[in-house]
Design a protein around this nucleic acid. Sequence first.
DNA 1: TTTATAGATGCAATGGAAGTGCATTTAGTG
DNA 2: CACTAAATGCACTTCCATTGCATCTATAAA
Lengths: 138, 138
Amino acid sequence: MDKLEKTLESRTVRPTAMRLLVLKFLLQKKVAVSLTNIEEYFDNSERTTLYRTLKTFEENGIVHQIDDGTGTIKYAVCEENCNCELEQDLHLHFYCNNCDETVCLTEYKIPHINLPEGYLAENVNLVIKGLCEKCSGH
Amino acid sequence: MDKLEKTLESRTVRPTAMRLLVLKFLLQKKVAVSLTNIEEYFDNSERTTLYRTLKTFEENGIVHQIDDGTGTIKYAVCEENCNCELEQDLHLHFYCNNCDETVCLTEYKIPHINLPEGYLAENVNLVIKGLCEKCSGH
DNA sequence: TTTATAGATGCAATGGAAGTGCATTTAGTG
DNA sequence: CACTAAATGCACTTCCATTGCATCTATAAA
Ligand SMILES: [Mn+2]
Ligand SMILES: [Mn+2]
Ligand SMILES: [Zn+2]
Ligand SMILES: [Zn+2]
């Protein structure tokens, strides 16, 4: 059986043709992708199907959403045995102002943040914007 | 002369009636507000005018935008002598999942984040979501 | 005071993206 | 094959940001 299929089935997601293609596409990309990116990549694709595909992936821990502040949600495949947990899996995301690409810096976990008395953290989003390695010129 | 007028003029923003009202409203609110919030507060207001008012305020360092991940931009008045600078003025923002309010935690500066070689930070957005002091129950 | 001009405002319209309702098709199960 | 749940396709809606252009207003020059 195909490796892609295994990935989906291990997450109890039925491996349809489109889902396999989307997963393959996500895996080969080194940067986070938007719904529109995917729609543009596949010629005869239905936006709604892709939308629900990503939603299903996300609900089953295959991908995580990235809100990089551009107004468009991006998606990236989760690491092996990721649970998208605070102070565990949550990592830094970097958006390049020049090439307009967003990447997961999975090695860079979000540091623990002290909060005022009474505040309870459930989720954290940390996005750094600037120039990526390709665009900074050094 | 009025204190509000002084604030605007010191930032070279002409103190029109609407601008003064908006600034007053922003100052009295302890939480970040959206364009729609302001629109709803003032009965006969024009959305576009408010939009451009906020834009003008932001361009002249009177307010800063807050992207709390809700999909709606919020605004809050900058601190005295704030320049919205990295590692200087940029602070943490907290969004309460229960009461749907976003607050500036101006005392909580964004910690320095190490980046991989070649990456250059120009801006940082750090939003914590959870329960605020009013909603956490302790 | 009148006039010129830049700036501010009002109104209409656009555009991007997320999200939903419902009919139809497809794929597993007995 | 027949049944049923899941997946897909299409149309439509909603929300928010943003722009173009006409009009109004305030300030400063004549
Ligand atoms: Mn990521
Ligand atoms: Mn703030
Ligand atoms: Zn780049
Ligand atoms: Zn709250």
